[in-house]
Nucleic acid binder design. Structure first.
Lengths: 256, 256
DNA sequence: CAGTGGTCTAGACCACGTG
DNA sequence: ACGTGGTCTAGACCACTGC
């Protein structure tokens, strides 16, 4: 009856005890599934095993697996599809493309977008960048500059920092060849799934360089968006500072 | 066996039918609880009946009630407290005060805040304001101006529009007497619970008036936050345009 | 028709808060 | 000791998808 893969729940749980390592069964299952995702056992876009299959594997009831998957689906790590199965979330599908892009045209008409890479080189992490990415100062990083345009109007200027170790083969040439969302590229080429991100937003005045690249007046107000993006297990893998022109676009957000 | 309060689910659900009015039982229960909240059957901060009690009232199993409450809790309309009960969310408690305020000090040290009401008068809704609040042009509205300061540094300038009908007794005097979050006042004095909000964010240049009130230079970049706040049933009840000084503060957001 | 996730039930036991 | 929400199980049936 006792499954060696799971914490024995019949342990010191009789009142008065308080085993710090205790967590509900479904949380343990959730952690196990998360490990599978992290190890790449199931790739983005693929389906994971059915609930009954997982229940058999982990020696728990279908209901317990279901609750674990419910939470992972609520966090957008998995996507349930009735009649088909449960799939690993991806940035590669039309439906969820630009999942993390909150800039929206004021008139809601989606515009054609294009990305222009300005620069891509290797560097050593400064104190700030190392802290954000969980590295040590001086560790190798990749720095990336680009402009995103909508209907050929430059709108977003991005300055991106990535851990050099994780993104070994990332070169200017590879980026120039590639079309499509950057996070989709990270998924397929480097096995890195962006799962969550935190942003800090400010209004700033355009510098000379920013103004000329975005074709606005020096000193114009820009929306500065500093993002740290995380993969499975809350490991930071990207620091991105964006500057948005918000003349005909706005950043949309929902509060609950 | 058939409970007149609920849709008879034994109806034309045999394959080939597709009753448009169909929805899962737990969704019907959710809607019923939502109605209770909307009617004020249980007030913010109070507890709703226990799961077993609701199950008996609606003639369904506890599990079905539970799933309905789960969703309402996920939407922050209800708050579960193990061992105590399930409570109606409120803006009146320390834990969730300023639930909708995303502006955070850069150094994360919370600062003492104070609100200064500059103006409060009745007006007629313009086309834009009527559209945002679901009113007709010319309907009565209340317009409200205030400055929020942190550590006595003016940081947020708010311009607020409310439906005149709903907020009948809202006067400058009442506001001056009151201390605490505005949404808490709306709850206790007008029975309006803010449940959700959408925001549109831009960077703009400070006008003369804004600059002098916020003590910044004319033309300085400000974060403009336009908010529509909703009560139960997605009914809009507030339009708010805020201008934030983001020198030492930032708007924080999480993407999932 | 078989397999998947979605709904619903009934019952057991655990953990927490309060008397 | 009691009542609340939290976990876990087992089993039935429904709805959707694809062969």
């Amino acid at each position: 009856m006792s499954d060696s893969r799971l914490i024995d729940r019949k342990q010191p749980l009789g009142r008065a005890s308080h085993s710090a390592a205790f967590s509900p069964l479904y949380q343990q299952i959730k952690a196990l599934i998360l490990q599978g995702l992290d190890r790449g056992e199931w790739k983005p876009g693929e389906s994971i095993p059915s609930e009954l299959e997982l229940a058999a594997r982990f020696q728990v009831s279908q209901g317990t697996v279901r609750k674990a998957i419910d939470e992972l689906a609520a966090e957008n790590l998995l996507i349930r599809r009735q009649g088909k199965g449960t799939y690993v979330a991806t940035h590669n599908e039309a439906r969820v493309r630009y999942r993390f892009l909150r800039l929206t045209p004021d008139d809601a008409r989606p515009q054609p977008s294009s990305s222009q890479i300005l620069d891509c080189h290797r560097a050593k992490a400064t104190v700030e960048i190392a802290a954000a990415l969980g590295l040590r100062t001086g560790d190798a990083v990749v720095n990336l500059h680009r402009v995103l345009s909508f209907s050929d109007i430059p709108t977003i200027l991005d300055d991106i920092w990535l851990p050099g170790n994780t993104f070994k083969g990332l070169t200017l040439e590879a980026l120039l060849r590639y079309r499509g969302p950057m996070y989709a590229l990270f998924e397929t080429e480097f096995g890195i799934s962006m799962v969550r991100a935190d942003e800090k937003i400010r209004a700033v005045a355009a510098s000379d360089a920013q103004a000329s690249l975005l074709r606005v007046a020096v000193g114009s107000p820009l929306l500065q968006v500093e993002r740290i993006a995380y993969t499975y297990g809350d490991r930071p893998v990207e620091l991105r500072r964006g500057h948005y022109v918000t003349e005909r676009y706005h950043y949309r957000n929902s509060l609950n």
